[in-house]
């Protein structure tokens, strides 16, 4: 359900960019997806196939997903570690004072069109 809303927003943005650049047909859209963005890629892809068919500009567009690994910074020991593997508590010093550096992105990277 969440994924469908995201797909609608991508379509809206691509249609705006399409109009600005006088594009006829979009063949591919590349998305950067963080590992902990909360978006399920398979879910996103199935929403995509359903939703783009309803548009003229994007009816043949494929969705390409580039994954951005999630990294967390620890304020305790000033080091960075892999979020998915270790979670919120620093595996190096045990500190709870950590924050995500990258990995929650849902970015529209580029579109391929003619």
């Amino acid at each position: 359900m969440h994924e469908l809303g995201i797909v609608f927003h991508i379509i809206k943005t691509v249609e705006r960019v399409g109009a600005e650049n006088k594009l006829v047909q979009v063949s591919a859209v590349t998305l950067e997806l963080g590992e902990v963005s909360g978006v399920v890629p398979q879910e996103l892809s199935s929403c995509w196939s359903w939703a783009v068919k309803k548009t003229e500009l994007m009816k043949e567009a494929t969705l390409e997903i580039e994954t951005i690994p999630a990294l967390t910074f620890c304020e305790g020991c000033q080091k960075t570690y892999e979020t998915v593997q270790h979670g919120r508590i620093c595996p190096l010093c045990g500190s709870e004072h950590t924050y995500l550096v990258q990995g929650n992105e849902i970015n529209l990277k580029e579109i391929k069109a003619h």
């Binding site: 927003h9 650049n21 849902i106 529209l108 579109i111």
Partner: peptide, 15 residues
């Protein structure tokens, strides 16, 4: 037509 690549580089939520 020639295939074009258009860089957008912004969050899906930007709009």
């Amino acid at each position: 037509d020639k295939v074009r690549i258009i860089e957008i580089k912004e969050s899906v939520f930007a709009d």
